[in-house]
Design a protein around this nucleic acid. Structure first.
Lengths: 163, 163
DNA sequence: GCAAACACTTGAAAAAGTCAACTATTGAGC
DNA sequence: GCTCAATAGTTGACTTTTTCAAGTGTTTGC
């Protein structure tokens, strides 16, 4: 299923699969959330394409563009990525002149990752388009839901799992 | 990031990464949606574990348990999976006696996938637990949001992407 | 009747994720 | 102050997942 971000979302008006929306799982919040996420990923990916950014690079760039000066370890934990994946993402941004590593003065084992001016600028431009696409996507929700959807998601996103 | 279903979600109260929630991207609906989806996946996975089901098998079983008699092609399109992935999932359910293939009388190239009685029963039991976990997860949302969250997600999930 | 398209299947290839091991550094315990 | 376990970042091996190619048998459009 599109329970990941690797698939392009199309509407259930695609004739051959419309009828399967009548089955029970299409009432499951988990299914709907996965589906909505897939649509969101596809839309975001499309918007970021012209900036040469992928969703993960965009997210990492956004964090470091906020002058947070995170260590790679912090990025890894926050983004829920393996440290070796952070290495690759930072390498890529560094190669493009959008971010760089600096030695962390508090701990010689660590780097902090900082955005360059070019990185800050690119992020701002990309974010403008991302937010525009989001607004368009959310536009048809009832107003009182739309205004609180982000907050609801944030609350759900920060609920501990049942481990 | 947890922009996929492969990661266990933990709260931002995990001390070392709390401060990164202050960056811009944590306002992005796409980021929050991905995060909420990751939590949802983790919770669903945990609930389905004791039934020996994974999220995708559960979804597929749910569709065929609804007496929809879908072809594999229809399942592939609906769930946004490659046909070869449907083969594996159906194989697995078939091996466990939860579903089976039948020749499609309308088209000899095709099979329809049907749930067995055991499959229908297992799905019902699993679904009960999935819905219970969902209710618990959504419980702290404001009432007027909680009552309409699923519908909002369904609307978003069925919006065409900008392709 | 023929050729292109299609359903399912198998398996190869590519991509993504996970894990192991290394060097250098830090911090806890004595 | 010393020792050793833990840690940060890195590289690369290994595993898993996804994508793609190609095959057989069937259907459809001309």
């Amino acid at each position: 299923m599109a329970l990941d971000s690797s698939t392009t979302a199309v509407s259930p008006s695609a004739a051959s699969s419309t009828r399967l929306w009548d089955s029970a799982i299409s009432d499951d919040v988990s299914f709907l959330l996965a589906r909505a996420n897939a649509v969101s990923m596809a839309r975001t990916r499309q918007v970021l394409g012209p900036f040469g950014l992928k969703v993960r690079s965009y997210a990492l760039l956004g964090i470091v563009a906020a002058d947070t000066r995170p260590s790679q370890r912090e990025l890894s934990e926050f983004l829920r990525l393996d440290p070796s994946q952070i290495v690759s993402l930072v390498d890529e941004l560094q190669t493009r002149g959008l971010a760089r590593r600096e030695p962390d003065p508090r701990d010689r084992r660590a780097n902090v990752v900082v955005a360059t001016d070019a990185g800050v600028t690119l992020f701002a431009e990309a974010r403008e388009q991302v937010l525009r696409a989001e607004s368009a996507w959310l536009a048809d929700l009832p107003r009182e839901i739309r205004d609180r959807f982000g907050r609801a998601l944030a609350q759900l996103a920060t609920t501990e799992d049942d481990s």
